[in-house]
Every structure is written in structure tokens, then in C-alpha cells.
Deep mutational scan, measured.
Amino acid sequence: LTDEELVTMSVRELNQHLRGLSKEEIIQLKQRRRTLKNRGY
């Protein structure tokens, strides 16, 4: 997933992508998404 996709994707879509990932990967992705959102994309 690109940063842009992460930010513009709805939470529902995101959760579908996260299905099948490990807990660590999910946590990393969610942190990255929060960081991007805070940057004001």
C-alpha cells in the first residue's frame, strides 16, 4: 500500500487489507496511517 492509499482509504477498506496480516504488521500500518493523517495530507 502507498502512503496515499493508506490515507484516502476508508477504515472498512483498510481492515479488509489487514485481514491475514500479522499483529505486528497491522500495528505498524496503523501507526504509519496515523502519522500521515497528523501531517495533514
Rank of each mutant, 00 (worst) to 15 (best):
S22H: 04
K30G: 03
Q16D: 11
K23V: 11
V11E: 13
T8N: 15
L1A: 01
R12I: 09
R12M: 11
L29I: 15
K37Y: 05
E5S: 04
Q31C: 06
V7S: 07
K30E: 06
I26G: 12
K37Q: 10
K30P: 00
E13H: 06
L29S: 02
G40R: 10
T8W: 06
L29H: 04
N15H: 09
E4L: 12
L1P: 05
T8I: 08
N38W: 06
Q31D: 10
D3K: 01
N15D: 08
V11K: 14
K30A: 05
T8H: 15
Q16L: 12
G20D: 05
R39V: 11
L1Y: 04
L1G: 00
N38E: 15
L18T: 06
R33Y: 15
E13L: 05
T2Y: 01
R33H: 14
N15L: 13
E24M: 10
T8M: 12
T2R: 04
T2F: 02
Q16W: 09
R34P: 01
D3S: 02
G40L: 14
V7E: 07
E4N: 07
V11I: 12
E4D: 12
K23D: 08
T35Y: 15
K23I: 11
T2I: 02
L21D: 00
G40P: 07
T8P: 01
Y41R: 12
N38P: 03
H17C: 11
V7G: 06
L36V: 05
I26A: 15
D3V: 02
E4K: 08
K37H: 08
K23E: 10
R39D: 14
I27P: 02
K23G: 06
T35S: 13
L14A: 01
G20I: 05
E5T: 05
R39P: 11
Q16E: 12
E24R: 10
I26N: 04
S22W: 01
L14K: 00
S10D: 06
L1S: 01
T35M: 15
L29G: 01
Q31G: 06
L6A: 00
E4F: 13
R19Y: 06
Y41G: 12
V7L: 13
E4I: 10
L18R: 00
M9A: 03
L6H: 00
K37E: 07
K23W: 09
G20K: 09
Q28W: 10
T8Y: 08
R33F: 15
R19T: 08
S10W: 00
N38L: 09
R33S: 03
K30V: 15
S22G: 07
T35G: 09
L18H: 01
G40F: 13
L29Y: 05
R19K: 13
K23Q: 11
R32E: 01
Q16A: 12
L36M: 03
E24K: 11
Q28R: 14
L18Y: 08
M9E: 02
H17M: 09
T35H: 14
I26S: 08
R19I: 10
S22M: 05
K30C: 15
E24I: 11
L36C: 01
L6F: 00
L29C: 03
L29T: 07
N38H: 11
G40Q: 14
R34Y: 05
E5R: 08
E24A: 11
G40C: 14
R32T: 01
Y41D: 12
I26Q: 15
V11T: 10
S10P: 05
R19H: 07
E24Q: 12
L36G: 03
S10H: 05
E24S: 12
N38V: 06
L29K: 02
R39F: 12
S22K: 07
E25L: 13
G40W: 14
D3R: 00
K37W: 04
L14P: 00
L14Y: 05
M9P: 02
Y41P: 10
L14V: 03
T8R: 15
G40H: 13
K30S: 05
L21Q: 04
Y41C: 07
K23Y: 10
L14G: 00
R34L: 06
T8V: 07
M9Q: 02
R39T: 13
G20N: 10
S10I: 02
D3L: 04
R33P: 00
G20H: 09
L21E: 01
I26F: 04
E4R: 08
E5M: 12
V7F: 09
R34A: 12
K30Y: 13
T8F: 08
R33L: 15
R39I: 14
D3C: 05
L18G: 02
E5N: 05
E5F: 05
L18P: 00
H17G: 01
K23A: 09
R34E: 13
M9G: 02
L36H: 03
K23N: 08
N38K: 13
L36S: 03
R33M: 11
E4H: 15
E4V: 07
Q16R: 13
E4Q: 10
T35P: 01
Y41V: 14
L6V: 02
I27K: 13
H17V: 11
L18A: 05
L18V: 07
Q28K: 14
L6Y: 00
Q31N: 10
G40A: 11
L36Q: 03
E24G: 09
Q28Y: 14
H17W: 11
R33W: 15
R12H: 13
D3A: 02
T35A: 15
Q28I: 12
L6Q: 00
Y41H: 13
N38C: 15
V11N: 13
L1T: 02
N15W: 12
G40I: 15
H17F: 15
E4A: 10
V7T: 06
V7P: 02
I27Q: 11
Q16P: 02
L21G: 01
M9F: 01
M9S: 03
T2W: 02
S22Y: 02
R32W: 02
H17Y: 15
K37V: 07
Q16V: 10
E13W: 02
Q16C: 13
N15F: 09
H17K: 10
